[in-house]
Design a protein around this nucleic acid. Structure first.
Lengths: 206, 206
DNA sequence: TAGATTGTTAATCGATTAACAATC
DNA sequence: TAGATTGTTAATCGATTAACAATC
């Protein structure tokens, strides 16, 4: 069971991590909390507070050593090794996500797509195999799948979530605009694209 | 200039709206705040508070009339008419988004895709035309574009944002993992898919 | 009138920000 | 030592929740 660290802190850690990867590529040796803040659009106090939840990684008067901090954050987040990920729904969105480079770059391996009547779907260029939904349980048990992405139509989402949970997966990224009912130990994050646009539309007037 | 209404309230309004559309299709006449809360995974107090920012839409002892509330919320959000939307970046993600039904359903018309060297891109089934980025200014001026979606690689995102802003667009949905520098009057919402997965991965251990 | 549910105020909670002592 | 920047505590801010008077 994890402690009382805000989910927003965790989300920001992953932003710091990506920034540090970039800085390491550029051979930057050290960085101050104020610089991290500027580069990621946050405040220095917030950066230091976030990091302090997990340890003391900096040197007073100096800042943070980029390679060390990167290592510490990736250990904290547990992204040092790659994580097998499946996508439910092999429509436009599902297929686009499966070839999204950002996932692979951060260590997420999209190992399979699932869909109903998978045999009807033409399997374009994608290297990722598409299986029938009925094979889900089997596949998940054989392969160590850590995360499921739900890119199915809204009507199918709750049902898909149940199947995913039954297969033993406890992390779900949900693109369908519904509040999924899942057991307490299952973690869901929602990406609601239409809501994002509606929110923007509100601000685009006035 | 908009008042001090929390952005999270606006985001929830759009969730209520979609729920009400559903309820209206099912011919539900009235609904209580507690029911709205259950259906969207929130609390009744929160629902009432959100709505109270904009007026008194309910009847004490009765609840809310579904058609009326739906109308009021869509007026508030300004989604009564459709909003022209463009997508920058015609790669996998851009093309998937352009055919994403959820956008059209909520009144967002994807009127064009833009990409560098647009002529090199084979224009699959999509009905949405793909233009060269150099035509952006011209297109936006001729058509009343309200929102731009950035589905370009991270290196190209800041530059794309500048062009979009120069063309006069003030609402941006950004899929690239960077903190975009934009003028104060421009509203940006970020969807950071890799960060979502990393956050989930953190919770999938332990 | 009695019962129900809103609208709204006040209390709680948690996250962000500010400030500064510790220390490299 | 003087200067800089962290780690951490305390103050602020804002959003969520609880409670209840208003009222249909």
């Amino acid at each position: 069971m994890k402690n009382q660290i805000p989910e927003s802190t965790i989300a920001r850690l992953s932003i710091y991590l990506r920034l540090l990867e970039e800085l390491e590529r550029e051979k930057t040796a050290t960085i101050r909390s104020s610089e991290i803040a500027n580069l990621s659009g946050l405040t220095a106090a917030q950066v230091r507070k976030d990091l302090a939840y997990f340890g003391q990684f900096g040197v007073r008067g100096q800042g943070y050593a980029v390679p060390l901090l990167k290592k510490k954050i990736s250990q904290t987040l547990g992204v040092h090794q790659s994580c097998k990920t499946i996508i439910l729904g092999a429509g436009n969105l599902g297929q686009a996500l499966s070839s999204y480079r950002g996932f692979h770059k951060e260590g997420f391996d999209i190992v399979a797509l699932f869909d109903i009547a998978a045999d009807k779907i033409k399997q374009k260029e994608t290297a990722t195999p598409i299986y029938d939904l009925s094979e889900l349980q089997n596949f998940v048990q054989k392969n160590k799948v850590g995360i499921a992405v739900l890119a199915v139509p809204v009507q199918a989402a709750q049902d898909a979530a149940i199947q995913v949970v039954e297969a033993g997966i406890t992390s779900i990224l949900n693109f369908a605009p519904v509040d999924l009912a899942v057991p307490n130990n299952v973690h869901v994050r929602n990406v609601d694209l239409a809501t994002e646009l509606i929110t923007l539309a509100y601000y685009s007037k006035s």
